[in-house]
Design a protein around this nucleic acid. Structure first.
Length: 922
DNA sequence: CTTGTGGTTATTTTT
DNA sequence: TAACCACAAG
């Protein structure tokens, strides 16, 4: 790989704090990866010394894969790569807490929807009504349900930003305290609390009793910190970075202040703009070669960037790629209506298809295909309808993000009707009508069977345990009774409808899980009623987007996306329609916002949350720089007078000399056969996902691609709790601190978290856990001191782009001096023996990757006294087989080839989802 | 060029 | 409910 002088400078600066200003298309990911390789090349540096942050999981997967590829190529096999962290800051926080702070082991992380359900359910205890909004000079409390979203934003900002405590009203501070108390008493982190807890600990003294191990780990292990997309970091994230570097780790931040587009999350462009002032001795490198776009696209982007005057970091993007500019590539066209605009875009898409295009300088040209084109909107939800209709009319394939609303789907409406039947708000005829309207291949007899399930759910017995009436159970039973199958969903055109319907039904299953996680402990009558109430009033707003983007395989289709979603991507041809005043740039929004609750002067530069003209210009800059060669901007007046005028961005573009305002007649170039660029998606699987994939590919699809969840079990959390106890015991054992029998009760009490158990069950589980741990200690105390690793992160890269990662429960040395890999099982729940054997042999591979050594034995230690433990010698022949098996499974996943088993088999017998897969044998 | 009024609209999304 | 825009009036 040839690097430019600037790239080489960035790659080789390893000792001074480094700021890399990376223009769009400047090969940023490659540079970061290569720099990590150079770090690892240094004598004495181990992979665990490196921590690299990205903004999203997707970016992390890309960076990780690129880095591993380079390492393989430049350094050959090196060990311990599983200890190198490349991921999001939230992921890092979770991982270090999980490793170093036993007190946090039992915490679960809430997603945003569960978070909001929690706030609504505990609105008084959470401080929702204690917090007050200042409206027209008088204060009033916030509304439950209606303003709980606002409340969450408020408690988010209060914990993430650099707040002037003096200016916070007492009642608001109290509300925040109440909210945090509720979170902690239920053992939950929200995304913010996860970061806050970690950051607060990172800033503690190395001798601190709780945070000490974490701080000492950072002090001893973290030597190089890399932060990508630095312009999108906010105050708490900056604190996290400082916490990691406080013992002298080298810091490298990478970003582009012109591409800050997440300001409403509180990201502070100032972090990157003032970086050189805040860290002493910073070396600054600007990557201003754009290898992606033609000179004309680059010049237009420059025009946009130059409107951003204040405090912009100096840079001068130059086109250095191989794309050539031909007059007519850049257009800014006006239309009298959105329909004309849509027709024109489709015409142009059709005309561009088959046009010769070179992905690389010295590669033969290929014909452009559907997936080489993208249409980017400021708001897909508001503006994309006419285009979608036209694409549909012409049978041009497209994938769209963020338009269809989940609860508008007829099959979801039918689900809602089924639950409202249970609480007596709909009749049997309503249920039949709604499912018939969904047209998913059910006949009258199927629905009769389904109604029987719903009738049973109606008849809960007062006094019976609440946990036996789970919504998820009812839902899955209903789907099983009606005999729904993916391949019997009728479809007019192709085979995709079954997939879409199952995707939506899977999402509904997730919605049930979200609700039930928070409302499990309500009595059946209230739970079902509350659920229906939530489904009709609140859920539709929460689950706004249902993208039918199922699987890893990328279809050959035109992309319709928002500019935000397009960040980090590129296409040969890009369209940016609906460039209307008040939409793009977007006008400010009315209604009450966080600053009606938080005094504006308590937050530094509070303006940044609201979004400015400059922020919109940055967004437009991002849109323009996605194009490699063809870029068509267009305007048509929208429905009302508000959107009747042209955007300033459109006018700005027309002033650029490379832009034509009318499309020239199509040049007659030799057309080629359209051939989409073949890009293999990176696949990273956890061990448990892999287990499902081995067991049954279709079950994997139902669970992880569609999102179907099994019902919550009352004892859920027990296995994890015992696991956590073992983890603490072994971590202490490594430090030479052997737990005694007298500590068992205390250990169990600290880690036991069974939120869905009724009181008697909880006692029973506590007792079982104590027994299991005592028995384990009694039987293994002798070799506790020979613990090598506990909860060890491992990673196996079986093929380029296919990685498996996970944690090994325990690695220990036996008295025979053999190394043994141990997996704990704590419940009777059977798992096929060969699956366990496979899993353990994957661990063996992981351990070998980590240390270069081969383990001798694999053990399953059953902590449940009624099950047996196993101990086997590592099977050499199995190790090769398993690699192939993983590779094949990964390839199948990439190709979206996830079939069900041909016949009912052992896996079906234990599968929670068999009922929506096939008929059970008599 | 400023001010008042009535009408219209309320985005983006990651963890 | 709040904020902003377009347009008209002064």
């Amino acid at each position: 790989m040839d690097y430019t002088a600037a790239q080489r400078a960035a790659i080789s600066t390893l000792d001074d704090p480094l700021l890399i200003i990376a223009c769009a298309g400047s090969g940023k990911t490659q540079v970061i990866s290569q720099r990590i390789v150079e770090i690892l090349r240094r004598p004495g540096v181990r992979p665990e010394n490196v921590v690299a942050f990205t903004f999203t999981e997707k970016a992390a997967a890309e960076l990780k894969n690129r880095t591993l590829e380079l390492i393989e190529h430049d350094l050959g096999p090196i060990h311990g790569l599983a200890d190198m962290y490349i991921g999001t800051m939230h992921g890092f926080a979770r991982s270090v807490l999980q490793t170093w702070v036993p007190e946090t082991f039992k915490y679960a992380v809430l997603n945003e929807i569960q978070n909001r359900l929690l706030v609504d359910r505990n609105s008084n205890k959470c401080g929702l009504t204690t917090a007050k909004a200042m409206v027209k000079g008088t204060s009033r409390p916030l509304w439950r349900y209606k303003e709980s979203g606002l409340f969450m934003q408020v408690v988010g900002i209060l914990r993430e930003d650099d707040i002037d405590q003096e200016k916070i009203p007492e009642d608001l501070d109290e509300a925040l305290g109440m909210y945090r108390t509720v979170l902690h008493s239920l053992r939950y982190f929200d995304y913010t609390e996860l970061l806050r807890t970690t950051v607060d600990m990172l800033e503690s003294d190395p001798g601190d009793s709780m945070a000490g191990p974490l701080v000492r780990h950072v002090r001893d292990a973290v030597r190089y910190v890399v932060v990508d997309e630095y312009q999108d970091t906010n105050h708490i994230q900056e604190r996290m970075i400082q916490g990691l570097c406080r013992f002298g780790a080298n810091l490298c931040v990478v970003g582009d202040d012109d591409q800050t587009i997440y300001q409403w999350r509180g990201s502070a462009v100032r972090n990157i703009q003032t970086f050189t002032r805040r860290y002493p001795g910073v070396r600054s490198v600007t990557l201003d070669d754009n290898f992606r776009s033609s000179p004309a696209v680059v010049s237009l982007a420059q025009t946009v960037a130059e409107t951003l005057v204040d405090d912009r970091l100096a840079k001068n993007m130059v086109a250095s790629g191989h794309q050539e500019f031909d007059r007519g590539d850049l257009l800014a066209v006006e239309f009298s209506g959105a329909d004309d605009e849509a027709v024109w875009i489709c015409d142009r898409i059709a005309a561009l298809r088959g046009t010769p295009f070179r992905d690389d300088r010295d590669e033969a040209p290929r014909g452009l295909s559907w997936s080489d084109m993208a249409v980017l909107f400021r708001s897909v939800a508001k503006d994309a309808d006419p285009l979608v209709a036209e694409l549909k009319r012409r049978d041009i394939p497209y994938v769209i993000k963020g338009l269809a609303r989940l609860f508008d789907a007829p099959e979801i409406q039918a689900c809602v009707t089924a639950f409202s039947y249970i609480i007596g708000e709909s009749g049997a005829d309503d249920v039949r009508d709604s499912w018939n309207a969904a047209d998913i291949g059910l006949d009258a007899a199927d629905l009769t069977a389904g109604l029987k399930v719903l009738d049973e759910a109606k008849n809960w017995q007062p006094g019976a345990r609440w946990g036996s009436y789970t919504l998820q159970r009812t839902y899955l039973d209903f789907l099983e009774a009606v005999g729904l199958r993916e391949d019997t969903v009728p479809s007019a055109d192709g085979t995709v409808r079954g997939e879409l319907v199952f995707y939506n039904l899977g999402k509904f299953s997730q919605a049930i899980s979200d609700f039930e996680q928070i409302h499990f402990q309500s009595d059946p009558a209230r739970k079902y009623e509350g659920f229906v109430r939530w489904l009709t009033h609140h859920a539709p707003g929460y689950y706004a987007e249902s993208d039918a983007d199922v699987g890893y395989a990328t279809p050959d289709a035109v992309t319709i996306a928002t500019v935000h979603q397009a960040k980090g991507m590129q296409w040969p041809a890009v369209f940016v329609p609906a460039l209307r005043k008040n939409r793009f740039p977007s006008k400010r929004q009315g209604g009450i916002n966080v600053f009606h609750v938080i005094p504006e002067n308590a937050v530094p530069d509070a303006e940044r949350y609201r979004g400015t003209e400059a922020d919109e210009a940055r967004l437009f800059y991002v849109a323009v720089t996605r194009a490699q060669k063809y870029l068509a901007l267009s305007f048509s007046p929208g429905g009302s007078s508000m959107y009747a005028r042209r955007s300033v961005f459109f006018d700005l573009a027309t002033r650029n000399p490379n832009v034509l305002t009318a499309a020239p007649p199509v040049r007659t170039v030799a057309r080629l056969e359209p051939r989409p660029r073949h890009e293999l998606p990176d696949v990273t699987l956890s061990f448990s996902e892999l287990k499902y994939l081995f067991e049954c590919p279709y079950q994997f699809k139902l669970r992880f691609l569609y999102g179907f969840n099994p019902p919550i079990h009352e004892a859920l959390g027990y296995g994890k709790s015992v696991h956590d106890v073992m983890a603490e015991i072994h971590k202490r054992a490594i430090d030479g601190d052997l737990a005694s029998a007298a500590e068992v009760a205390d250990l169990v009490d600290r880690h036991l978290n069974v939120p869905f158990a009724y009181p008697a069950l909880r006692e029973q589980l506590r007792d079982a856990a104590r027994k299991a741990v005592s028995r384990y200690l009694a039987e293994n105390r002798g070799i506790l001191g020979q613990t090598l690793h506990s909860e060890q992160q491992v990673q196996v890269r079986v093929a380029p782009g296919i990685t498996v990662d996970g944690r090994i429960d325990l690695i220990r040395r036996l008295d025979t001096n053999e190394t043994s890999i141990v997996d704990f099982k704590s419940t009777e729940r059977a798992q096929a023996e060969e699956v366990t054997r496979d899993q353990l042999h994957v661990y063996v591979l992981g351990y070998q990757e980590l240390t270069g050594r081969r383990a001798d034995l694999v053990e399953v230690l059953n902590l449940d006294e009624r099950s047996r433990s196993t101990r086997e010698v590592v099977d050499e022949s199995l190790l090769g087989d398993i690699q192939n098996k993983i590779r094949n499974a990964g390839e199948a996943l990439r190709a979206n080839d996830l079939p069900r088993h041909r016949h009912w088999c052992k896996a079906c017998a234990t599968c929670d989802l068999a009922g929506i897969c096939r008929d059970k044998p008599a």
